[in-house]
Design a binder for these strands. Structure first.
Length: 178
DNA sequence: GAACAACTGGCTAGTAACGG
DNA sequence: CCGTTACTAGCCAGTTGTTC
């Protein structure tokens, strides 16, 4: 039976490490805020943001303003997920264009990927950043992958979502936009 | 002394190991 | 398989230090 006052090695180790870990965390936050400040000061030509002592809250407020003004996030009054859909479409087109520009890419593979990508549609339902993130699908390559006839997408079953919304089984057969 | 930043202790969620 | 325990990582609110 160990005495209550005895300090276990792991506990002592953690106590020593904790301040360092927290300091690193703050540094990460501050580094990113600093990068944001520099970026925004150039993008917005803001004198206020050129001051390294500008408040963190100020940097975040300017970031929100910048994103809203650049139409990268839904605006009040936007209907549905038009921005998301057009972004999705743009990504698909870019991917297809990139693939077609590679003559050395295996033809069967190219055909397979083209077919898979072209068959995707952006989700019809509106999505907002506060929603549960959609798992990113990965095309399931198998030995005969180029000959797959369906639009089946197999997604890594390694994780289930916290709320249990997706099980490994649903990941395997998940076909979001088909 | 006010405003802000850094530090610290406590809490929680996730996870691995273990035994029944 | 399920419950328990120990451990870790990350977050956050309260406290302390620093700057102006």
């Amino acid at each position: 039976m160990k005495g209550a006052s005895e300090v276990r090695p792991m506990e002592a180790h953690r106590k020593l490490l904790k301040p360092l870990v927290e300091r690193r965390r703050r540094e990460r936050i501050n580094n990113s805020l600093e990068k944001l400040r520099i970026f925004l000061s150039q993008a917005l030509k803001s004198e206020k943001l050129k001051n390294p002592k500008v408040e963190k809250a100020e940097i975040l407020e300017c970031t929100v303003q910048f994103l809203q003004s650049s139409k990268l996030v839904p605006q009040d009054g936007d209907v549905g997920n038009k921005g998301y859909q057009s972004g999705f479409q743009h990504c698909l087109e870019t991917a297809l264009h990139f693939m077609n520009s590679k003559p050395d890419l295996n033809v069967a593979t190219k055909d397979f990927l083209s077919h898979q990508l072209s068959s995707y549609k952006p989700p019809a339902e509106a999505w907002s950043p506060t929603d549960t993130p959609k798992p990113t699908p990965s095309i399931g390559y198998q030995d005969s992958a180029p000959h797959l006839s369906s639009n089946t997408i197999s997604v890594s079953p390694t994780k289930t979502l916290v709320d249990g919304q997706f099980s490994p089984q649903t990941f395997q057969t998940w076909r979001p936009w088909v």
